[in-house]
Design a protein around this nucleic acid. Structure first.
Lengths: 242, 242
DNA sequence: GCTTCTGTGTACGCTAACGAACATTGGCGT
DNA sequence: ACGCCAATGTTCGTTAGCGTACACAGAAGC
């Protein structure tokens, strides 16, 4: 991985006016995000917000019986810790790193301070939150109506969008935890996709070979989320990522 | 139905400081909400926000194939149309009246005006939105992991909390649309609950006889949402509802 | 009183996904 | 080079929920 890193790799930071960036960026801390790392647990008081750059974070809920389900995914398009600016200080979810990389971290009090003083950050946060609402709603619908293989397609596409490469470091077991299904169910779906030549996988590595085909096999849920996110938060890079 | 009605029956309005109420209340329009009425469709530009008093509104998503699923429920604890203050102006959901009654309606421009000028309304909206996020997340989990009869219990409890009475005017068919399952599935679950003496129903009317038992039979999802909503938006009536 | 329609009950076969158990294999540590 | 374990493959019986079809009864309209 290149040592070139910049907060602007995060789309929300990127979307801020220059003067807001100038104030905010010095407060940010560049931190590694390791696979499986838990940023916060259900009920924890949040200490920081995270702006992922090349990492992916899953928000998931763990039931009393230990089963889990992914509520939404956050990558460089978003921020982890919306509860801090929503005023709740905690959520009922767990935030866990789904794909290793880095993020920029900001202590909660600085974040809230910025929010209160400058409107642009707040506006952006609100729009992002609406995108998050859309994603959650769609996850809910997908859980109800679509088959595992369709959901796997959705999940792969959401992950791809948040990575630079077409390879995911991810086991069937972990995907199963995210989707809230059995590992065997994921294996079945993945092997089906592999037979179709859409993906190729091997012991914890999944490579997407044919993205158009993947979108074809997917249910509508991916497109709905993607379109709405693009509408709410159009991405215009202010500085080319070197 | 009594002709006694007041915007304070809505918990969000009720929670505002007196001076904010004084400004806001004259702008509100008291409107009837009829069963099945669609407040907005997916993609519509929202014109108003609604503060339900004794009505209940479902936010639901309709898939390409025509299947539906309820994303969340809004009653007198909340507001319909968060997209207006989130900045998106529209959502991918449909808002439909699930239980007839009334609401107070506010044109979008007044609403946004109020938001920008006075912090207290914004703070309240943010907290409510977090409660909504929680509800959506939990619906998603419930769709994945819990049986229809448990989900029916959750749905009944969520509805009860938003009504004064223990009787719902609601057919199995409509509940099925909300839960995103077959009508027969709801009939099975409901008949099971009736045999247990928890509810009693008859051609479009459901009466809850034993609420504690209903909570017992329910999955954790109801309690999680309830607890988090109470935490985020504690309800302290400022004027007893006559 | 009659018809008609809406809401509910019930039965049948079917499928997706589950739970559990076990086989196989590749990669990693020592 | 070896052994071990994590990752994947496969099977089998079970179950929840689906799609369909149809029966029945109460309510509403004429």
């Amino acid at each position: 991985m290149s040592d070139k890193h910049s907060p602007l790799q995060n789309h929300l930071i990127n979307a801020l006016p220059a003067e807001d960036q100038a104030r905010l960026i010095p407060l940010l801390e560049w931190v590694p995000m390791t696979l499986g790392q838990v940023l916060y647990e259900s009920g924890d008081t949040l200490r920081h917000v995270y702006f992922p750059t090349n990492s992916i974070v899953s928000l998931l809920y763990v039931t009393e019986s230990g089963a889990s389900a992914e509520i939404s995914v956050v990558g460089n398009e978003g921020i982890v810790g919306v509860a801090l600016f929503m005023g709740g200080e905690s959520t009922t979810n767990r935030a866990i790193v789904q794909s290793a990389g880095h993020a920029y971290r900001l202590p909660g009090k600085y974040f809230k301070n910025e929010l209160n003083q400058h409107g642009q950050l707040m506006i952006l946060m609100l729009r992002y939150t609406q995108a998050l609402l859309t994603q959650m709603a769609q996850t809910s619908v997908c859980n109800r109506h679509h088959r595992i293989d369709q959901q796997l397609c959705r999940w792969l596409l959401l992950s791809l969008d948040r990575l630079m490469s077409n390879e995911l470091v991810m086991t069937h077991e972990l995907i199963a935890n995210m989707l809230g299904v059995r590992r065997e169910g994921v294996t079945d779906a993945a092997s089906k996709l592999q037979k179709l030549g859409v993906i190729e996988y091997h012991r914890g590595h999944i490579t997407v070979l044919d993205r158009p085909k993947l979108e074809e096999l997917c249910c509508e849920c991916y497109a709905v989320v993607k379109q709405e996110t693009d509408r709410l938060l159009p991405y215009v890079p202010k500085q080319p990522v070197k």
